[in-house]
Design a protein around this nucleic acid. Sequence first.
DNA 1: TCCTTATATCGATGATCGTCGATCTATTTG
DNA 2: CAAATAGATCGACGATCATCGATATAAGGA
Lengths: 110, 110
Amino acid sequence: MKLSTVRTCCEPVLVAPIDQAEAEELATAFKLLSHPIRLRILSLIANAPGGEMCACDLPEVMGRSQPTVSHHLSLLTDAGLLAREQRGRWAWFRVERERVTVLRDALNLT
Amino acid sequence: MKLSTVRTCCEPVLVAPIDQAEAEELATAFKLLSHPIRLRILSLIANAPGGEMCACDLPEVMGRSQPTVSHHLSLLTDAGLLAREQRGRWAWFRVERERVTVLRDALNLT
DNA sequence: TCCTTATATCGATGATCGTCGATCTATTTG
DNA sequence: CAAATAGATCGACGATCATCGATATAAGGA
């Protein structure tokens, strides 16, 4: 899904009417923000030292099992909201801020 | 849910880390934006003449049944994203822009 | 008061989602 | 190569969600 080509800061949802296809793509993206674990993961990584975090720390911090955390990390990564980098046997993640900006700008009112 | 007291433009999700309670409230709000019909309803009403729209027109425009549209209007209204006003036997809706702004600001990166 | 119309609510059904134990894969280390 | 460890994938289960027909409610008009 190339979200940035669908909706930019110049044509936000609440200023220009959207059609069915655009609504479906945006809804899919906002769905990623509709779960507390995913919001906390984004918030945690964005505020981590160096803006990145190792997946190995997340199950304990989140209080969820490793498969559950891995599942949510995959969803965020597949959607382009997180970038994944393998270092040795550890996976490091950082927030793709441009993608978050696209979603924020979709809610512009002016 | 008093969302505006929980998260303002001064402490966005990606600048300050959020705890479990805040994440749950925000996730509940973003869930409303995670369905194409609800995004189209918001977009349609925000761009309607006078910024308001009668519910009577929505089932045909959306291609959904009257109960389905009523259900989504209730979700948006209960969450404060839409304001409902009864005029005679018709229900008119307008977008509560301040509430949308709260969600947008939660995604601020700077 | 009776009829019509707009909207909400109920109830049921199928679909999607979140979770985790078990297992598989890949990488490092001894 | 074998053991250990990080992470992904699988499979199943319960929970939540979207939808719509049927029906209830509420308001206006005859």
